[in-house]
């Protein structure tokens, strides 16, 4: 994520962002994106699987 990309996106989204702020935003987002992007996502993964996992791992009987 570069400041230039953020400035372009901001224009499309209709929000006001200065070049200095675009640099701050890019610096804040990049480390998080780097972490997320290096984690492999299973081909079959889907968000709803989380709800099943909660139920399967439930500890309310203890």
């Amino acid at each position: 994520m570069t400041p230039e990309t953020i400035l372009d996106l901001a224009k499309q989204l209709g929000v006001s962002v200065t070049p200095a702020r675009a640099k701050e935003l890019a610096e804040g987002i990049t480390p998080t994106l780097a972490t997320v992007n290096r984690l492999p996502v299973a081909f079959e993964a889907e968000p709803e699987a989380f709800h099943s996992a909660l139920e399967q791992l439930a500890g309310d009987a203890r």
Binding site: V15, T32, P47, F50, L57
Partner: peptide, 27 residues
């Protein structure tokens, strides 16, 4: 709030998709 406007959709969905796997790993 402004930070959230500029994340790619793929990163957001990856974070959602990984939630079940991460819960199982932690458990």
């Amino acid at each position: 709030l402004e930070f959230g406007m500029f994340y790619p959709g793929t990163a957001y969905l990856a974070a959602l998709d990984l939630r079940a796997a991460k819960l199982r790993e932690f458990d």
